[in-house]
Amino acid sequence: MPHSEFLSESPCPVARSVAVVGDRWCLLIVRDAFDGICRFGDFQRSLGLARNILSDRLRRLVEAGILALQPASDGSAYQEYVLTPQGNSLFPVVVALRQWGEQHLFRPAERHSVLVERSTGDPVPLMTPSTKDGSVLAPAGTEVRRIGD
């Protein structure tokens, strides 16, 4: 069984998610879609990705229900890739990856982009899992329970 088929049949939600969006190009396409990119050529310019690889990843994201193709908003003959509700629900995942990268992959004072609230210009607060009462939830405070066991 190919690796991705194994992941897509796994009882683990993380494994199934990785099977769909775990490829770096897929995540960067989703990131760019959140930034307003919607045309093939614009994705290609942003990512510097070969056309065949970009075509494949866009097709996968459409098949997975993360992106949808629609006629161009400007009435031209082009088509645009837009995030579906399922795709929009990946926003916290992309933000968490961004924040992890900001914390661990840059030297102090090294320049990088920052995600801010459009209305205030304030940086987006650090995302952390929390308990029902709002306390920070550490990995040691969780466990995986298999449904149906």
Rank of each mutant, 00 (worst) to 15 (best):
H3T: 07
S4W: 11
E5F: 02
F6N: 06
L7R: 13
S8N: 14
S10N: 14
P11D: 15
P13H: 12
R16S: 14
R16Y: 12
R16F: 12
V18E: 10
V18P: 01
V18F: 08
V21Y: 08
R24S: 11
W25P: 03
W25Y: 13
C26T: 12
I29T: 07
I29V: 15
V30Y: 03
R31D: 09
F34C: 03
G36A: 04
G41N: 11
D42R: 05
G48K: 05
L49P: 05
N52R: 08
N52K: 08
N52L: 09
L54N: 14
L54H: 12
D56I: 07
R57A: 09
R57P: 07
L61N: 12
A64D: 14
A68K: 11
P71A: 08
P71K: 10
S73K: 04
S76N: 00
A77Y: 01
A77P: 00
Y78F: 05
Y78M: 08
Y78V: 02
Y81P: 02
V82S: 05
V82K: 09
Q86A: 13
G87R: 04
N88G: 01
N88Y: 00
F91A: 05
V94K: 03
V95K: 00
A96M: 01
R98W: 03
R98P: 01
G101L: 06
Q103T: 05
Q103C: 05
A109W: 02
A109N: 09
E110K: 02
E110H: 03
E110T: 02
H112A: 04
H112N: 07
V114H: 05
V114F: 01
P125W: 04
L126E: 06
L126D: 05
S130K: 13
T131M: 13
K132C: 13
D133C: 14
S135R: 14
L137F: 02
L137C: 05
P139V: 07
